[in-house]
Simulated scan of single mutants.
Amino acid sequence: MKKLMQIELNESSVSIAVLLLRFGVGIMMLVHGIPKLQMLFSGDIQFPGVMGMSPTISLVLTVFSEVLCSILLLIGLFTRIAAIPLIVTMLVAVLMIHGSDPYAMKELGLFYLLGYVVLLILGSGKYSFDAIMQSYRIKE
C-alpha cells in the first residue's frame, strides 16, 4: 500500500510509462494514417482541404504526421520533434474538421492530443533511440 501511495517519481517507472505511451499512441495513430497513405497512393483523394490548402496538400501533411511521425514515436527517435506535427494535426482535427461536431466526435482527437503533449514535455525516456544517441554523444 505504501508503494501505491508514493509520490516520488522513479526514472525507470517514468521511462516505462513513456515507452507504453509512445507505443500505444504510435500504433493506434498508424491505424488512422495507413488508410490515408493508401488513399494518397491510389490518387483517389477524398480529403478536406484546410486553412486554404488543397485536399492533396492537406492529405500529404496528415500522412507525414500520422505515419512517419508515429513511426518515429514508436522507436523513440526525435520524439519531441515528431510530437509537434502530431499535435498540430490533432488540433486541426479537433478544432477545424470536427469543430462543429459534438464533444463525442472530438474526444478521440483530444486524447491523442493529450498524449502527444505529454510526450513533448517528457521526451522519449531511456528506452528509446534518442537515449542511445544521447549516451553515444556523451561518450565522445
Rank of each mutant, 00 (worst) to 15 (best):
Gln46Ile: 06
Phe47Cys: 00
Pro48Glu: 09
Pro48Asp: 12
Gly49Gln: 06
Gly49Ile: 00
Met51Lys: 08
Met51Leu: 14
Gly52Gln: 06
Met53Ser: 09
Met53Lys: 11
Met53Ile: 01
Met53Glu: 09
Met53His: 14
Met53Ala: 14
Ser54Leu: 00
Ser54Thr: 10
Ser54Glu: 03
Ser54Ile: 01
Thr56Ile: 05
Thr56Lys: 14
Ile57Leu: 15
Ser58Asn: 11
Ser58Trp: 13
Ser58Gln: 09
Leu59Ala: 15
Leu59Ile: 01
Leu59Asn: 11
Leu59Met: 03
Val60Gln: 13
Leu61Gly: 14
Leu61Gln: 06
Thr62Val: 03
Val63Glu: 07
Phe64Thr: 01
Phe64Ile: 01
Phe64Gln: 02
Phe64Lys: 02
Ser65Pro: 09
Glu66Ile: 00
Glu66Tyr: 12
Leu68Asp: 02
Leu68Pro: 04
Cys69His: 14
Ser70Arg: 09
Ser70Trp: 11
Ile71Ser: 08
Leu72Tyr: 10
Leu72Cys: 15
Leu73Asn: 04
Leu73Thr: 08
Leu74Ser: 01
Leu74Lys: 03
Ile75Phe: 04
Gly76Leu: 05
Leu77Glu: 05
Leu77Phe: 15
Leu77Arg: 06
Leu77Gln: 05
Phe78Asp: 00
Phe78Ile: 13
Phe78Trp: 07
Arg80Gly: 04
Arg80Ala: 03
Arg80His: 05
Ile81Met: 06
Ile81Asp: 02
Ile81Val: 15
Ile81Cys: 00
Ile81Glu: 00
Ala82Ser: 14
Ala83Thr: 10
Ala83Asp: 01
Ile84Lys: 01
Ile84Ser: 00
Pro85Ala: 01
Pro85Asn: 02
Ile87Cys: 05
Ile87Lys: 03
Val88Tyr: 11
Val88Thr: 07
Val88Met: 13
Val88Lys: 04
Thr89Arg: 07
Thr89Asp: 08
Leu91Val: 14
Val94Gly: 08
Val94Trp: 07
Ile97His: 04
Ile97Pro: 12
Ile97Gln: 13
Gly99Asp: 09
Ser100Gly: 14
Ser100Asn: 12
Ser100Glu: 12
